[in-house]
Amino acid sequence: MAPRIQRLDHHTMEKYENIWFGIAVVMSVLLAVAVFASFLSGTIPRIEDEGGGGHHLEGVKNGRINSRNFAGTPFATPGLVDNKDGTYSAFVVARAFAFDPPVLKVPAGKPVTFYLTSADVLHGYYVEKTNVNATVVPGQVASFTTTFRSPGPLNIVCDEYCGVGHHNMLNKIIVEAPQP
């Protein structure tokens, strides 16, 4: 006797459909909750909006800056600034095809607030082996705060296409051990 073919029927499918639909919704919501929790706990160096994007800096308004002229702004002399309260500010200017300063020295274990801007096109500020990853936009200041824990050199990679020399836009952060 030939085996009877058991075909799927409407009612069974509908039951599984509903279960599957429920799982999908719960999963999506749980994912969002998990990310929201990690956002609140500060594990991600969040990129500030115009309220925090260096609005207190000279020559910067609502996180915007004149990309043609950095005179009078902290970006005229890029580099690390010791705020004398245990925190640091790092000012970085991106230009095709290098970051200024080419080597940024930062102390380990101290919060550093970065302020990035571009003098020409879009660039990306990606620090290897970390979750520091910000778009550097001409006319805008990108700002975030992060703490580098272990001393040593880290590559900075431009990860936004900026022209024929894009792949050579590589610089360094040197995380220095605290002075004994």
């Binding site: 599984y16 459909e17 599957w20 999908a24 999506s28 909006d49 115009e50 990853n133 778009t135 805008q140």
Partner: peptide, 29 residues
């Protein structure tokens, strides 16, 4: 990764992105 866009809107769009997974999961089923 872009500056000067509110983090609240980034998170709202993220949540809505997760929701678009639902019709694709229904399709998989």
């Amino acid at each position: 990764a872009d500056p000067n866009i509110s983090n609240v809107w980034k998170l709202i769009h993220m949540f809505l992105t997760f929701l678009v997974a639902i019709p694709s999961l229904l399709t998989a089923f």
